[in-house]
């Protein structure tokens, strides 16, 4: 279970406060959506969960399975099952996709006290997962994300997610830059990972992703706090009424 308690976050090298007492609980087996206007702190929440530098937690805590993760390095969090699918996946020139996947998969397995995969085991595993996401295996021989289209990058993120078998999946604007076909492939990939042991936090600006990845709960994030929580129908309401109600309240 993910428990975010009264989380206050500011930028490390500026006085700008972004999250102002965010409280949220996502039980295992559930998918929660976070919706909100631009600048509400959605991406900050995603980065703080994954442990990116540049943010300072000034108050509150983040517990994953009862354990505080805010002091952990990103790789420790990954070993504990935290995975962030980036809004803008990064390109790593010179590192082949397969090398990257194998290094990551085995690093995580090692920390989880599982045996590292041999080359044939790894190749079988990656081929199987890539095929499900319509990813051309040849693409994985190229440097990570270099020259990939927006859709290819997002599928590559979901492939990494499938390979690392996380238990807390945070998807940051996974629908941005996707056409309708790519959206379906990516959503199917995410839905395939839904399960009783996995919690998911789907961050999105628009409702359309939630037609494909149907959430158990929808939270509205504005001005650094959860302003409203409801069922999946809340997303449809927001699509009609917009975020004005919440930004107005915030002001």
């Amino acid at each position: 279970m993910l428990e975010i308690k009264n989380l206050h976050v500011k930028l490390a090298d500026e006085d700008k406060v972004i999250l102002k007492g965010l409280t949220l609980t996502v039980p295992k087996g559930e998918v929660h959506a976070i919706m909100g206007p631009n600048g509400s702190g959605k991406s900050t929440l995603a980065y703080v969960l994954a442990g990116r530098e540049g943010y300072e937690v000034t108050d509150g805590d983040i517990l994953w399975n009862g354990e505080s993760i805010i002091e952990m390095e990103p790789d420790e969090r990954a070993a504990k099952g935290v995975f962030l699918a980036f809004q803008y996946p990064m390109e790593i020139p010179g590192v082949a996709g397969l090398t990257f996947l194998r290094t990551a998969t085995n690093a995580v397995r090692k920390k989880r006290e599982l045996t590292e995969m041999t080359t044939p085991e790894f190749m079988k595993f990656v081929k199987e997962k890539a095929a499900k996401l319509n990813i051309d295996f040849e693409m994985l021989k190229r440097p990570v994300n270099v020259g990939f289209s927006g859709g290819e990058k997002k599928r590559s993120e979901i492939l990494q997610m499938a390979m690392l078998e996380p238990t807390l999946c945070v998807l940051d604007e996974t629908d941005s830059g996707l056409d309708i076909d790519a959206l379906k492939v990516v959503s199917d990939g995410v839905n395939a990972l839904r399960g009783p042991d996995r919690a998911m936090l789907v961050i999105t600006h628009y409702q359309r992703l939630l037609n494909h990845i149907v959430p158990d709960k929808v939270h509205v994030l504005a001005d650094g706090r959860i302003q409203k929580t409801g069922g999946k129908e809340l997303a449809l309401e927001l699509e009609k009424s917009g975020y004005a109600e919440f930004t107005g309240k915030a002001a």
């Binding site: 994954a50 442990g51 996946p89 690093a107």
Partner: peptide, 11 residues
């Protein structure tokens, strides 16, 4: 890029 790698579990 270091963050991207570490977020995937790479020390």
């Amino acid at each position: 890029l270091v963050f991207y790698c570490t977020s995937r579990g790479i020390p």
